[in-house]
């Protein structure tokens, strides 16, 4: 149990550092990058919570969060590249269209 508490403490420190970059980030892409890393860390935090509370159901939530994090990152990037979510990646007009 002490292992999980120590791991969670290190994880929370790492999350705070990434959150600082999310707040400071001078550019949009810095923020997306920090958001992606923060999502990965959240998956790990959900796993830790599952072990600390001894409820393995949290692993399902972690699995789902990993998927949502990936799709969310792609959706944000696609929106800022095409200014719309409906247009396909195969369309010829570039990001400034």
């Amino acid at each position: 149990m002490i292992l999980f508490i120590a791991g969670t403490a290190a994880l929370v420190v790492a999350m705070l550092l990434v959150l600082a970059r999310l707040y400071l980030g001078p550019d949009l892409y810095d923020r997306v990058l920090a958001l992606n890393s923060f999502g990965t860390l959240t998956v790990l935090l959900l796993g830790y919570i599952g072990f600390l509370t001894e409820r393995p159901d949290f692993l399902d939530i972690a699995l789902l969060y990993a998927l949502i994090n990936f799709v969310g990152t792609i959706a944000v990037l696609k929106f800022f590249r095409y200014r719309a979510l409906g247009r396909g990646l195969g369309s010829q007009d570039g990001p400034e269209a």
């Binding site: 292992l3 791991g7 994880l11 550092l17 550019d27």
Partner: peptide, 21 residues
């Protein structure tokens, strides 16, 4: 956990410290 936490902390520190995107 020790190895992984080390990598997590160094990576998060690097995200704050490194100079550009």
């Amino acid at each position: 956990f020790a190895t992984g936490s080390f990598f997590l902390l160094v990576g998060a520190f690097g995200i704050v410290r490194l100079p550009d995107f």
